[in-house]
Simulated assay, not measured.
Amino acid sequence: MRTPEQVLKDHLRRRQDGDLESDLRHNYHPEVRLLSAEGIHHGHDGVRKLAEILKSYLPAGEYRYDQVLTDGNIGMLTWSGRCGEDGGIHDGVDSYVIEDDVIVAQTIHYSSQ
């Protein structure tokens, strides 16, 4: 069994590598619940949809992970991203619930510039 910190670090590494499908297989429960400003989404298709929306704001996928915190089965990530010289995201915050080696719930917040 991996610790929640190990699950999140693996999730972030795979995303940094642009490997969404591998991330889904290794780190997300098939029925994961996702809450964001884009609404409520479920399952791997929900993760794909939200990743597609984020990619529309940051097509090059240039992310910086500022802080990863875990306490028990809860995790939080603060992050930012750049798109060109003037655009990007400066206030990304995701929270996670991790059970049995996978992410079972996630909230996502960010604002685009």
Rank of each mutant, 00 (worst) to 15 (best):
H26Q: 12
G39R: 07
D23I: 02
Q113E: 10
R48K: 15
K49D: 10
D66I: 06
P30L: 01
G84A: 10
G88P: 12
R25F: 00
D23H: 00
V102H: 06
V47D: 00
V104I: 15
T70G: 06
K9F: 05
R15T: 05
L50W: 00
I103L: 07
S111R: 13
I103A: 07
W79G: 08
G61T: 11
A105N: 04
D94T: 03
T3C: 09
E99S: 12
R13P: 01
D23E: 12
S36P: 04
Q67S: 10
Q16N: 11
R14G: 01
P59G: 07
L8I: 04
V104F: 05
R33T: 12
L77D: 07
V47N: 01
R64Y: 00
R15G: 04
Y63K: 08
Q106V: 08
Y57P: 09
L20G: 07
S22R: 12
E38W: 07
G92P: 06
R14K: 13
P4Y: 06
G92Q: 01
L50E: 11
V32H: 01
S56A: 14
H29W: 01
K49Y: 13
Q106T: 07
V104R: 10
V32S: 02
I53G: 04
I53H: 09
K55I: 03
D101K: 03
D71F: 04
V93H: 08
I74F: 10
V93T: 13
E5W: 00
H29L: 02
D17A: 15
D23K: 00
V93W: 03
Y110E: 07
L34T: 03
T107D: 01
S112P: 15
R14S: 05
E62W: 00
L24H: 02
Q6T: 05
V47E: 01
R64E: 14
H41I: 00
R64G: 09
S111M: 02
L8E: 01
A51R: 09
A105I: 00
D86N: 14
V7L: 06
P4V: 08
P59C: 09
S112T: 13
N27Q: 06
E62T: 14
H42N: 10
H90C: 11
D94W: 01
R82Y: 03
I103H: 04
S95H: 06
I108Q: 10
D71G: 12
G46P: 02
G88A: 08
Y96D: 03
E38M: 11
